[in-house]
């Protein structure tokens, strides 16, 4: 075990020198200002129409109820809209402005929008060639002929990946706050946010709904983001061990994740899809009370399913990596 820190240092250095993390920070630096500008447009547009945010919410509720009374809207859509109406009503009753713009609020929204697709993509950009890349360049032969057991090599890669995933989440939140705060102000830490929504079929169970300060909400979100990003990283590692070509392993993982978002939007018809990992990635939705993609999914359910996928991924990775012959 003495060598493990040195091995992790090796892997961290490799990822660093490949400039992967720099690319990710650059992407964030380009995307966040774009979204900040878009959000700014939305906010200023609303301000023009509604002097008071309460009027805006009332208008939203009215719009939603209009669509609910229409026969042409499918039942699945209505379900989520009914929930949305109840939520808005709750905000109104408790005098909480759900979309008061601030740096913290923007970060919160950015995280919840990026958890299913954007953050997994960043994670894969770093990790998808962590093993397959060494195979393509042949350096795996150098790596595995050293007097080090193979499982230690893979573990060091996993550690380095964990480190970078954590760093990515942290940097995303920090950059969001810093960049959007420039426009919306750096406040919003203690704004109350509603959480604790529980779904009982189509009705929202508001008995356990309570408010938490926005900073805590953001922290909870970041934690969930980290968890789902780690599952993606572990599965990416597995695919990287199994598939020799870097391009192929990246495409495999991306399509699995995109398939998840597509299945989520197709909703309820296929019940057993809820056991797929990519359908469960949107963990932050449970905090906000957005209805889950498939009925019967809850936060503990999703956490358990993801953990099981992660465990299976780790098992397969280590098993194949330690036993396989290096033939290329």
């Amino acid at each position: 075990m003495r060598k493990l820190p040195a091995l992790v240092q090796n892997e961290v250095l490799k990822l660093w020198l490949k400039k992967r993390f720099v690319v990710i920070v650059l992407i964030l630096f380009i995307l966040i200002p774009i979204f900040t500008y878009a959000e700014h447009k939305v906010v200023s547009n609303h301000r023009e129409h509604f002097a008071d945010w309460r009027n805006q919410i009332l208008q939203q509720i009215a719009d939603l109820e209009n669509t609910l009374s229409s026969d042409r809207i499918p039942e699945e859509w209505k379900r989520s809209r009914r929930v949305a109406v109840q939520q808005l009503q709750y905000y109104l009753n408790h005098d909480i402005n759900p979309s008061e713009p601030s740096g913290v609020q923007f970060s919160r929204e950015f995280l919840s929008n990026s958890i299913t697709l954007f953050i997994p993509m960043l994670v894969l950009a770093m990790g998808s060639d962590i093993v397959s890349g060494e195979r393509t360049t042949g350096t795996i032969k150098m790596l595995l002929t050293r007097p080090v057991k193979r499982w230690k090599i893979l573990l060091s890669k996993l550690c380095a990946l964990t480190l970078y995933v954590s760093l990515t989440i942290a940097v995303t939140v920090i950059l969001c706050y810093l960049i959007s705060g420039f426009v919306f102000g750096y406040g919003g830490w203690i704004t109350p946010v509603l959480t604790g929504f529980r779904m009982e079929g189509a009705v929202i169970d508001s008995s356990s709904v309570h408010t938490v300060p926005q900073w805590r909400f953001l922290l909870m979100q970041a934690g969930l983001c980290w968890f789902s990003a780690m599952i993606v990283a572990v599965l990416g590692l597995m695919v990287s061990v199994l598939i020799r070509s870097t391009a192929a392993s990246l495409v495999t993982m991306m399509s699995a994740i995109i398939a998840g978002t597509i299945l989520s939007s197709m909703s309820s018809s296929w019940r057993s899809a809820k056991y797929l990992f990519s359908v469960n990635l949107g963990l932050t939705g449970y905090l906000e009370g957005t209805p889950p993609p498939i009925e019967g999914m809850t936060l503990p359910f999703s956490l358990i399913i993801l953990a099981m996928w992660g465990a299976a991924g780790l098992f397969v990775s280590f098993r194949v990596f330690t036993k396989g012959d290096i033939l290329n």
Binding site: T139, K141, M142, P147
Partner: peptide, 23 residues
């Protein structure tokens, strides 16, 4: 084994450091 495979994106010294840490 076959070709001398080293990490292209590192300097020679950094490569040797990588392998040195493994021993």
């Amino acid at each position: 084994v076959e070709n001398p495979e080293v990490y292209n994106y590192m300097s020679g010294w950094q490569n040797l450091e990588q392998f040195a840490r493994m021993m």
